[in-house]
Design a protein around this nucleic acid. Sequence first.
DNA 1: TGAAATAATGACAGCGTTGTCAATTTTAGG
DNA 2: CCTAAAATTGACAACGCTGTCATTATTTCA
Lengths: 380, 380
Amino acid sequence: MRLGASNRQIWRSGAIGPSQLINRMKLPMTDQDQAPGRRTAKAPTIFDVAKQAGVSIKTVSRVVNAEINVRESTREKVLAAINDLHYRPNTAARVLSGKRFYVIGLIYENPNEFSYVQKVLNGALKACEAGGYTLLLLPLTLPNPDLIQDVRRFVSQSRLDGVVLPAPIGDFTSIQSLLTDLDIPFARIAPRMSLADELSIHCNDEQASFDVTQFLIDQGHQRLGFIKGDPIHAATAHRFEGYLRALKANAIEYHREYVQDGQFSFESGGSATRALLDLRSPPSAIIASNDDMAAGTIFEARERGLRIPEDLSVVGFDDTPIASRIWPPLTTVRQPIVEMAEALTGLLIQKLRGEPVDSSERLFACHVVTRASTGPRLVN
Amino acid sequence: MRLGASNRQIWRSGAIGPSQLINRMKLPMTDQDQAPGRRTAKAPTIFDVAKQAGVSIKTVSRVVNAEINVRESTREKVLAAINDLHYRPNTAARVLSGKRFYVIGLIYENPNEFSYVQKVLNGALKACEAGGYTLLLLPLTLPNPDLIQDVRRFVSQSRLDGVVLPAPIGDFTSIQSLLTDLDIPFARIAPRMSLADELSIHCNDEQASFDVTQFLIDQGHQRLGFIKGDPIHAATAHRFEGYLRALKANAIEYHREYVQDGQFSFESGGSATRALLDLRSPPSAIIASNDDMAAGTIFEARERGLRIPEDLSVVGFDDTPIASRIWPPLTTVRQPIVEMAEALTGLLIQKLRGEPVDSSERLFACHVVTRASTGPRLVN
DNA sequence: TGAAATAATGACAGCGTTGTCAATTTTAGG
DNA sequence: CCTAAAATTGACAACGCTGTCATTATTTCA
C-alpha cells in the first residue's frame, strides 16, 4: 500500500554525477591482489602508469582527477595504462600532498533502537565506497553537555572533508554553525532551512502522518489519540502537523486531551497510552510517533485486556524491526532511509569535488505499511 | 540476577598495555583547533617539536612511537614540547612513509537485528580511538557466494593492518585462511581454536545456556522445549550443549522431539513453536536460542490463547532491544558484547604494535536477566 | 601567413613522516 | 685512565602524490 505522496517534487536516486573515474571503478581481482602479503608485492604507482602511457606523472594525475585540459587521445592512453596495471592512487600520498582528506564523518546518536542508524550507515557507506571516500563514525550519547567540543575534536583530529548529519543531529543548529565556522561542508537528513546552497534531504513526514491519520479515519475512527515524540527531533513537529491537518480535512474537532507527549521510548509510549485510555471517552485509535512508543501502547492496552485492533487500533512510525516482531504486527510508516542516506552522502561528495549540486528541494516519499494492529472501528 | 560463571578464567578489562603515548592523549582544545578552517591554521609538525625540544626529528619520532633507546631526560623534553605545541603526528605522512596503515577493518553480517553489531561497533570504535587507529567497516550480506572475493578486495583496497571478526564471521574458516595467507592479523569473537597465538574472545555460551535451563528446572519445569539457532553460528551448538548438560545434571530424559531447528529469525521461532505445541505432551517451557525466535514463540503461543508465563514459560538469548519491548518482557541471557569487542580490538592493536599479547584463554561471563516471560510451572 | 591567445603537457618542489645507517656519547670492564 | 661495547642521537633519502609554474603544441583571427 502506497498512499499518495505530497505534491512537491519527489527526488530519488543515488546518482553521483560525473567525476573521478578511478574511484568509481570496481577493479577486478588481480594477481597482485592475490599475492600473499600486500607488504611484499608492490602496488603500481603513478610513475608506472606514466611510463606505460608515455606521458608525465602530472598528466596521469590530471586524468585520475578528471581535470580539464587533457586531450581525449591522451586520456584514453592513460586510462588504458591504468587499467592494464590495475593502478589505484595511494590515498596517503594524495592526502599528504593535496588539500583534501578523502574522509567523510558520520555523526549519529547512539540509541537503543539502532535500526535507523544502521540504515543510514548502509547508505552512507555505499556512497562513500562509490565515491572513493572513507567513512568515519562518531557516535554521540544525548543529551551531551560537551556536544560541541566532541564534534570539534572529531572534525579536527580526524581530518574530515565533510560531515553527514542524520536525524536528530542534523537538527542541532549549534553543530551547523560550528561546521560553518570551521568551513566544513555538511549534509543533513532534515527539512531544509533557509540557505540556498545547503545540502539536505528529507521525507514528507507531515504528509505521511496525514496519510496514516486519514487511513484511520477511513476505517471509521473519529477519536484519534496522538502520542508526540521527543521534541528534539524535527520529525516530531511534522508528524503532529500532519495529524492536525488530517483532522481538519475531515472536520474532526481537535481535542487537546487526545494528544500526549512522549520521548520516543517504549516506556513513554506506555504512560502516554495510560493517560489516553483513562479518558472518559478514550480514543478508538492511537497514533504513536514511532514504533517503540506504539509497542508501549500495545503493551499497555494488553495490560488492560483490550483487544487489538478490535478495541483499539494502533499505528507507529519508522517500520523498525520491532514493528513486525510484536503481536499484533504494527501498521507503521516506512521511510526509504538507506536511499536517502546514500543520496545525501552522494550530494556531499559532489560538493566536495567542486561539482555543481542541484539546488532544488530533495524530498523522498514515505509510505504506510498496513499490518494487523489496525482495523475498522467496532466500538461505539 | 547473576548465575554462576564457569570455572574457567574470566577475563575482563579493555586495558591495552603500554605503548604509543601520543595516540593515548586526549588533547585539550587549543586555539589552533578553534581557528576557523583547519585548512589555514597549520598544524605543528615533527620539525616544530624537534626545534622546540632541541633534538632531531628522528628522536621525536622515537618518542612518539615509544621506541627503546631514548634517554629518559630526552623523552621528557620531547614530551613537554609535544604538549606545548599540541602536536599530533600526521597519519597520512606516517602511512606514506612507514609500513603500517593505522587502520583496522570490521567485517560484520548486516542483519535485520542490528543490536549485536551495534555493540560490537561501539566497543571496537572505543578501542580504536584509544589506540589511534581508524576503524573501517565492511557489511556483508549472507549467504554470499563472493564472500572471499569481497573480503579480499576490502583488505587489499582499504590497506588494513588488521581485522576484527565478530560472530558469525569469525566462524568462517575460509576467511581465516584468507587472512592468514595475506599475512593480516585478525581477532575473533568466537571460541578459540587450536592456534596458540590466535586472538579471540568469547563468552561462556554453554554455561549460560546451562544456567538458564537450570533456572527453568528450578521453577519446576520438566518438559523443556529447545529451539536451535542458525547452525552457521558456533553459539548455536554451544547453547544446545548447555541445555543437554542441564538435562543430564538433573536426570531429565532427553526427548528428541522437544528440540526444533530454527534460523534465529522471528518466523523460524514461530514455526518451531508450532511444532512443539502440537506435541501430545507439549513443553511447559521453551528455550529459544535468541530473542527474535523467543518473540516468535510468544507470538505463536498467543495465537493459541496460551498465557505467558502461566501456561508457558519462554526464554531467549542476547537481551536485544526487543526483549524488553514485547509483552511479556523476555527472560533472556545477556552477553557483555561492548566490553568483549573493546577488549578484542585492544588485543589486536597490541599485536599490531608488536607488543606481547597474553596468550591465555579470554572468556567473559554472560548472565541471565529475569523478566516476566518465565514463572513456576503451573500446568500439570 | 604570422602573431597572439589558448590548450596541453611537463619539471620539480614540497607534504610530514619513518627506515637506514652512520656518528656520537655513555657505560662497563679491566 | 683507556678501550670496547652498548646506548643514544642525527642526517638524509625515500614514500607517491598534487600544486605551481614554465614550456611546448595547437588554434584563432587578422
